[in-house]
Design a binder for these strands. Structure first.
Lengths: 126, 126
DNA sequence: AAGATATAACGAAAAAATTAGTTATGCAAC
DNA sequence: GTTGCATAACTAATTTTTTCGTTATATCTT
């Protein structure tokens, strides 16, 4: 999956939040100084060309919605990152951030609980 | 920390691997079709302006080396990502990827071991 | 020293991304 | 129906990024 450019990503973040919206709606969710209406309109059409969004037409006005979910894009992006920076090992990445204290004890305990569950689930499959 | 552009990132990846190198060395590590010598030379000088690398001069030739480590860039990049896609919670991110089966049982067991250790370490600090 | 070679610096062309003005069209208000 | 307004499409300007030709300079070879 292609990576989003900076401007494209900002628009996608808004659409992911809104679920769907007209250019006007997207624009509203930008901080001041807001870009021009046409700027958003252009970007959203580029996103459509790239297959990240589609639209439903009401007469002449278009309601845009994501084709690629935030989860799917996350997955793709983080997979690339893990591949490029942690030789494709999620384990290495998580260990690194755990050791660097970017994950709190509380978070680690939560993660371990979830993992224990997942491990159990995976093993019982066999 | 500023994000690297695509071309810049490729050069940084090589420099991180080499630890240090002349433009010629960096060029060698590119796949065919290799870019022009001057392309790399320009990018590495841009990286220098941005503070990602510096160089040691041997007469007229420059040996470049990273000022920003791969680890530091990873941290910055992933922090941004976690902030934008998982409301700044590493726990949420890791849980998501654990549930999506992007982390193998073996990896999860390793991660849990490391986390148990970290948790113990953190708690004994008090 | 003269010529060849390698390199960085410079400059600029080309490509990609961003921003927004202009235009055309449809709908709404009157 | 005419006017005004909102919108998408189109176009273009600007900025950023990427690429590389040209030039100047230092070093090496002879």
């Amino acid at each position: 999956m292609r990576e989003l450019t900076r401007a494209e990503e900002q628009v996608m973040q808004v659409l992911w939040k809104l679920k769907k919206g007209f250019v006007k709606d997207i624009l509203e969710h930008f901080d001041d100084p807001k870009p021009a209406y046409n700027t958003i309109s252009t970007i959203v059409r580029i996103l459509q060309d790239k297959g990240f969004v589609d639209h439903k037409a009401y007469g002449r006005t278009h309601e845009y919605y994501p084709l690629v979910s935030k989860d799917d894009y996350s997955k793709s992006h983080l997979s690339n990152f893990v591949n490029d920076y942690f030789s494709n090992s999620f384990g290495k990445m998580v260990s690194f951030f755990a050791k660097e204290n970017h994950i709190s004890v509380k978070e680690m305990e939560e993660i371990m609980k979830i993992m224990q569950n997942e491990v159990k689930k995976q093993k019982s499959k066999k």
